[in-house]
Structure formats: structure tokens, C-alpha cells
Design a binder for these strands. Sequence first.
DNA 1: CCCTGATTCGC
DNA 2: GCGAATCAGG
Length: 204
Amino acid sequence: MSWTDERVEVLRKMWGEGQSASQIAKELGGVTRNAVIGKVHRMGLSNRAATAAAPKAEPKAKPATPSAAAAKPKAEEKAEAKPKPTIKAEAPEAAPEAEAEAPTPTIVPHVRRPIIPAGQPLPPQPSANEISPEALAKVSEVEKKAKRIGLMELTERTCKWPIGDPATEDFWFCGLPVQAGKPYCEAHVGVAFQPMSARRDRRR
DNA sequence: CCCTGATTCGC
DNA sequence: GCGAATCAGG
């Protein structure tokens, strides 16, 4: 695969949106995240509040080309890293998750979401719901051996089921391995979406 | 261990 | 120019 204009454009867009290199690579296909990163650098657009690996004043032990890092005689170059230029009126667009439940065994391709929305609609706590006792029991059990990871530790394959009160220190995420694509581990998937199918046929 | 981006360097 | 290998950090 080569970097055609179209592919570069996708790269630009996604990188601009804050997508990770691996996500972009996945999207493009035929390239690795390394390739993406390499390209990004070559194109000049590189860091901007990425993850957390930014402070690199080049403490490396191989400043082979000190000149590169040398100061530019040219005064006021473009102020590249603007703290916060303007508030972009993106399209906040809170996708109405009206997915009561799809009886179809269709698997969603992959809904990649750029980031975790701040006020992310967290899964409903099982309290008010009528969920199979087994599932609930299993959840409580699981929560005892949950990894209790923090927000930062969440990945695509860690259970994102919140446990405890977000307002207190008594709060964490399950963190157990998720179940194939799902955002939660097996136990939590059970209580997370278990719409009517189960309750419908058992209810009457 | 999972992930992230950054850099180097042979091709 | 490209990107695997490697590095550095969370």
C-alpha cells in the first residue's frame, strides 16, 4: 500500500480528530500504526495533546544532529502549539443510543469512538431493573475480584462497568477482560444488555 | 500486559 | 519516502 492522496486525507482527518495511530492504521488497512506514525511525522503534523508522551526535550543519548534541535535564528516562527485557539463547533452529536436491543445476530462492524465522552452514559445499574438473579449474583461475585482499575486504565478490552459511587473514592471500573467486542466482561454484559428477549419470554 | 506516540535507520 | 524495530511513557 502506498500513501495515495485519499489515504493521506483520511490520515489527516483522523489524526486531526485525535484518533490514535493504531485506529487510523486499522481504518486504512494495509499499514501498521508505525507506518501511520511515521507518515504523520514526515508530514509535519505531529504531536498535539496526544496521550501522555509529549514532554520530549530529547533527553535521548543520541542527539546526532544537534543542529536540528538548535534554535531557529528566524524569529517568531509559527506558534505551533496553541493552547486553545478557538472552540471548534464540532458536531457534539450525542448519538441517541436507542438501541433497545437488536434481535438480529448482526455484529456491529466497529463503532470506533474517538474518545470517551465526558458525560458518557454509563450503563444502568441493575438496581431498578428486573434482571435474572443469577446474573446479579454473578456480578456481585465478579465485582469482588474485579481489577478495580481507574479511568485511565480503560482500554478496548477492559470491562468498563463502573462500580461504586463516582463521587467518592469508592469508585472504580471492573477492568476484567471484555467479551469479544463488548464493552464489558461476560458477567456485566449479562446485566448490561439483556433487554426483553430474556425477560419477555419468561415474563408471560 | 495493554496501550500510546517518538525516533532511528536500513531499505 | 517508507516503516519495522526500538524506545519511552501511561
